[in-house]
């Protein structure tokens, strides 16, 4: 890295990093520090006096059954979204990688959903699943199924999982396809010569060679499901019915913005920060081929 240094003087480079550093300090580090500080304080009911309480907010949090429920819910939700969207994406990528007519068109038609906003995906699914006006919702009712995701917690969870996974398929598809294309044709040919066919060839040769892509996507999808689905949940269910779809991020918003419980919300933020740090560390530990330092 040192050999790259080609210009002298420090005024110019400092001027170059300054905008990035200022934004980082004011909008990332400072608020994060504030969150850590606030997580160790508690305000009285009128928000006038603030008292230092140490780790009390955290011990309260982890002895609160509602919070533990929310952790469990987030894990189930994230795992379902990751598995569902990755499975569909892998299936489509395997077939789009075949030498067939029109594969360029198929790829384009599977890539554009990358552009759909999580919240807009949710609106589309509202329009499909709505018990009164939605195609699927209406159809299910016609079949005699009591479908109303605004009243039934399990159905609500299903709806947010479907909308979240649907939006993410395209991203996973792009990566799986790139992963498949980077497998040398010779390896596949050799397996074909050895008589490994179809499913067996996929299971014993292709899938193991895709492992780095799969692992990378697991981390990305879990981060996506846990942190980027606030808009999806808000548009579809607003965390309800009851708290049936209240994930950890949604709960930070509800407790902090709607209920104005600063101490608890900050403690939850700090817990989430630790979770992101852990996930990022895992990602760089196993995927860190590019940023060695």
């Amino acid at each position: 890295m040192e050999r790259r240094t080609i210009f002298r003087g420090w005024l110019l480079p400092v001027a170059f990093v300054l905008p990035q550093l200022l934004l980082t300090f004011f909008f990332f580090l400072w608020p994060a520090g504030q969150a850590i500080y606030a997580s160790m304080t508690r305000q009285d009911a009128f928000g006038i006096r603030t008292q230092f309480v140490g780790a009390e907010n955290f011990t309260d949090l982890f002895s609160d059954p509602l919070y533990l429920d929310s952790i469990r819910r987030t894990v189930v939700f994230s795992a379902s979204v990751a598995v569902l969207s990755m499975a569909v994406a892998l299936l489509l990528a395997v077939f789009a990688d075949r030498e067939i007519r029109g594969r360029g068109l198929y790829r384009t038609l599977l890539i554009w959903p990358y552009a759909i906003a999580p919240a807009i995906a949710a609106v589309l699914w509202v329009l499909l699943l709505h018990p009164q006006i939605g195609w699927i919702g209406h159809g299910l009712r016609a079949l005699g199924i009591h479908w109303d995701y605004k009243l039934d917690g399990a159905q609500a969870m299903l709806a947010v999982i479907l909308a979240s996974a649907w939006k993410q398929v395209s991203y996973n598809f792009i990566f799986f396809l790139a992963g498949l294309q980077s497998i040398p044709r010779a390896v596949i040919e050799a397996a074909r010569m050895d008589g490994a066919r179809g499913w067996r060839r996929f299971r014993t040769i292709t899938f193991p060679l895709l492992a780095p892509t799969t692992f990378f996507l697991i981390v990305v999808n879990v981060v996506y499901a846990a942190f980027d689905t606030f808009g999806t949940i808000r548009a579809l269910t607003r965390g309800g019915p009851g708290k049936a779809t209240e994930t950890l991020v949604y709960k930070v918003y509800v407790d902090g913005v709607e209920n104005q419980n600063l101490g608890s919300s900050s403690a939850q933020s700090v817990v989430l920060m630790l979770a992101v740090i852990l996930l990022t560390a895992i990602q760089f530990r196993y995927m860190g081929r590019k940023t060695e330092r």
């Binding site: 980082t24 909008f27 608020p31 994060a32 969150a35 918003y253 933020s269």
Partner: peptide, 23 residues
């Protein structure tokens, strides 16, 4: 400087909602 920028990877807006609003 480099590490300061790097750290922001770990602080998505979702985890610092309230304090960022205050800033």
């Amino acid at each position: 400087c480099f590490w300061t920028i790097f750290i922001t990877l770990m602080l998505p807006v979702e985890v610092r909602i309230i304090p960022t609003y205050a800033v």
